[in-house]
Simulated assay, not measured.
Amino acid sequence: MKESPQINGAETPDAPSLSEELALLSAGKRIELLAERYPGRVVASTSFGLQAAVMLKLVKDHAPGVPVVFIDTGYHFPETYRYAMELSDRLDLDIKVYRSQWSPAWQEAAYGKLWEQGAEGNEKYALLNKVEPMNRAIAETGAEVWLSGLRRSHSRTRVDRPFAEQQSKTMKAYPILDWQDDEVERFLVKNELPRHPLADEYVTMGDWHSTKKISEAESAEETRFGGEKYECGLHLNSGVTDFQI
């Protein structure tokens, strides 16, 4: 039998087998398994988006020792920042906030409005404001497993996602990957969790300059980045290699 690789005496995650194992569990049990199997090596992220309360409540209940990271681009909706404060207070969360090393004002002075400069500008924007800060968060927390709230029902680009996948040197796991919208709604109601203030107007939530209301688009995919893409830069496919940790 092939032995699992070890790092400092601990088992190294293996994406395919881990994904199969997680598929058999509930969302809460998935989080518990990961936190227990890889102690001190798990981090969760939140965008304080439309379903953020679900993942935050699950992590709080099933793995309260796991650090939660919020990547602050400086361009979130004002309502998102207020929601972040409300949820953090309600759930008694210790959120670790990471930002670009270059302020929004500095970036605009140096490069202009990157989000208006096509694919190349959006890629640079993502690297400065999302990828690099998350790289730092991963490094500083010592995490090897990253919990994210992606769901297959979000868009066509996510329907084939496994429950765990390797993204560069980090294992990404998606505890609520198979949840449908009605399951999210039932969880919010059951746990009396507040909704994002813009939940009735948007189907996805990102920076104010790259997110459209659902009334202004024909599909969920078209509400982000003018319909050119849906993923923000953090949630790349496992085959992409330009996300370096």
Rank of each mutant, 00 (worst) to 15 (best):
E79S: 08
E79C: 14
Y81W: 12
R82P: 04
Y83G: 15
A84Q: 13
M85W: 09
M85Q: 15
E86Y: 05
L87P: 04
L87N: 01
L87M: 04
S88F: 02
D89T: 13
D89Q: 11
L93G: 08
L93F: 06
D94N: 14
D94K: 06
I95G: 05
K96W: 12
R99Q: 03
S100N: 00
Q101M: 01
W102I: 01
S103C: 01
S103F: 00
P104N: 00
A105M: 01
W106C: 03
A109T: 00
A109L: 00
A110V: 01
Y111G: 04
Y111K: 02
G112A: 04
K113M: 00
K113F: 00
L114Y: 04
W115M: 01
E116M: 02
Q117V: 09
Q117F: 11
G118A: 05
G118V: 06
A119G: 12
G121E: 04
N122I: 11
E123Q: 15
E123S: 15
K124G: 14
L128S: 09
L128F: 12
L128M: 12
N129C: 15
N129T: 15
N129V: 14
K130W: 09
K130V: 13
K130S: 13
E132M: 14
P133D: 11
P133W: 03
P133R: 07
M134T: 10
N135P: 07
N135L: 03
R136M: 01
I138T: 14
I138M: 13
A139T: 08
E140Y: 10
T141F: 06
G142R: 03
E144R: 07
E144F: 01
E144S: 12
L147P: 06
G149Y: 01
L150W: 03
R152E: 05
H154V: 11
H154M: 13
T157P: 12
R158G: 08
R158I: 04
V159D: 04
V159W: 13
D160M: 05
P162N: 05
P162A: 02
E165W: 12
K169Y: 13
M171C: 09
A173H: 07
Y174G: 02
P175E: 09
P175Q: 10
I176K: 07
